[in-house]
Design a protein around this nucleic acid. Structure first.
Lengths: 330, 330
DNA sequence: TTGTAAGCGTTATCAA
DNA sequence: TTGATAACGCTTACAA
């Protein structure tokens, strides 16, 4: 069933049928009704590929994420897709993993499918080496690119960033004000986000005239536990664990328990992201709500404005909210 | 840059270029090399829409999920997409929510985009009322449909199911063998999955000659807590909480703590899915690993076989694994 | 207000 | 082994 069949059955030309379908140009009410009836009777819907060809768009947006199983990224998809749908876009999702090469390959695949824009979730796509980001810059020459919680300065690249520095500063300050004197900053790798968080933590320490100390942990949960236990068993005192995300914080919680340390009395612990984990553990985590939904909304705005050739700031920084729970002193 | 440009620059016809691109028909090595060179020089890639039109496929698969933010569903996407990619398919993901009408509308949207097959995640898409599943049956007349952890008997619909009945039976038996005498089965709504789990739990109770008792909880975490606390405060004894998923189990854990009950000494608790939550809480949850990855792999197989007109069983049931942790007696 | 016809960029058939 | 050419199904000037 195609536009010709409809045109034949309703006794008008295909041009008219097209006008009816797209609500474009002039069509008399009478003809419109006639055509609509035939369309509905056959429950015809226009061929998407042909449309794509004629319009050179199929209204799709590519979403790249390193790991859709990750709580944070899954949240993003969960918020983004319905927003896209509301604007008649479909979301092609590609999970790239953390390897730069496959990230580039996957992005390429999306470009080859002629997506109208790209949304990259998380800072994993941006490298310190500008050469490695070149492919994103290149992509942005073709279509708008939105970075959610990642930063890259380039034309047609729109970045929506949570103010992680400020957030971590608030978390650290909170803990220090509650009496901590020997905090340790726990992080995974040195992403953009981690750097900002370190700055915030460092600043809080300086303001309280307290030495800054940090400890890297590994990716696997079990190894995290070990690293943190070693830390607690060490000679240096430690009365606060300031983690860059909730998962690490949960590991910290567990390590403390195993070590016979009470949270928050002996050691205060903070997370980040305010994910489901923060409420699943006990004591519940003091964390930071980085308003994923807001970020997604802003990203959508950016993309939509860009697609309509409207102006939008290349960099948007917003603030989240400190969530105080049981893992820090009252 | 299109196939004509390439043909012109390499001094051959577009037919030959097409053959080179698709590795189809006969092309002399010499010509192939010549054409490839031009293609690479211009880093040309064929227009996806035109291809879609000519082939009447763009190699895309639609994934429907009610909520991509949900741990379980996010896991599915995380496993599915890379598998699809390996077979050169792109994944259009649509988050439908839990409302039947929008589920149908979203599925329709995917069909209109000419996806080659559909994967539906979770049992939320299947209703007890066959009329409400009609749209899925209809879709399956056009393209293969795979239901992950959902069941619908219809032509061209392939269901991959974890044996939830058996799993819940194992969990309940475990708890009863460890001494529980007044278990309560905690569930959300009566999905297919829940029904199976109830059966398993019920059977275990019968085998141990113990009365079966159940309690429905609400969707929101906070309300869950209340419901379970009321349960614990009630006059009837309760020494085991058997939850249909980890989130409810975490709520159960918390309710026990608030109520001054020790887990597992006073009350044993079990979850389901073996999600990150199971290890985040304390005591860590005894849960059931339903092998999401295996399920996704099987779903992929089904789809690929169906697309190649090979036979594949309409219903595949597999077993997961009991994971014993701290929330049940040793 | 409607219709004709020229693209859009491929693939695939058939002839050479 | 290669090349002309007809689909594929739509949108959109332009003409009527």
């Amino acid at each position: 069933m195609n536009i010709y069949d409809i045109s034949r059955q309703s006794g008008v030309s295909i041009a008219t049928v097209s006008r009816v379908i797209n609500n474009s140009g002039y069509v008399s009410e009478k003809t419109r009704a006639k055509v609509m009836k035939v369309i509905e009777q056959n429950n015809y819907s226009p061929n998407a590929f042909a449309r794509g060809m004629a319009n050179s768009t199929m209204s799709t947006i590519g979403i790249l994420c390193s790991d859709a199983g990750d709580l944070y990224q899954a949240q993003c998809i969960h918020f983004l897709e319905p927003l896209l749908k509301k604007e008649k876009f479909a979301a092609i999702v590609s999970c790239t993993g953390y390897d730069g090469e496959s990230q580039e390959k996957d992005l390429q695949m999306l470009l080859e499918r002629n997506v109208d824009a790209l949304i990259l979730i998380g800072s994993h796509f941006i490298s310190d080496d500008p050469k490695k980001n070149e492919y994103i810059v290149r992509a942005a020459r073709r279509i708008p690119v939105c970075l959610l919680n990642g930063y890259l300065e380039a034309d047609n690249v729109f970045c929506i960033l949570h103010d992680d520095r400020d957030a971590q500063h608030k978390l650290a300050s909170h803990v220090l004000e509650k009496g901590a004197r020997a905090p340790v900053f726990l992080f995974r790798q040195d992403s953009h986000s981690t750097k900002k968080k370190r700055q915030g933590c460092l600043q809080a320490c300086m303001q309280h005239d307290i030495p800054f100390r940090e400890q890297q942990v590994s990716e696997s949960f079990d190894e995290m536990l070990n690293v943190i236990e070693d830390l607690l068993a060490g000679t240096q005192p430690c009365d606060a664990l300031i983690a860059v995300d909730d998962e690490i914080a949960v590991a910290a919680l567990k390590s403390c328990t195993r070590h016979g340390l009470k949270v928050p009395e002996d050691v205060q612990v903070t997370g980040f992201n305010d994910s489901v984990l923060a409420q699943a553990c006990s004591p519940e985590l003091t964390s930071f709500d980085n308003r994923v939904e807001f970020m997604c909304r802003s990203g959508m705005m950016a993309i939509m404005q860009a697609l309509n050739n409207h102006d939008y700031p290349f960099k948007t920084i917003y603030n989240g909210k400190l969530i105080v729970r049981e893992s820090t002193c009252p």
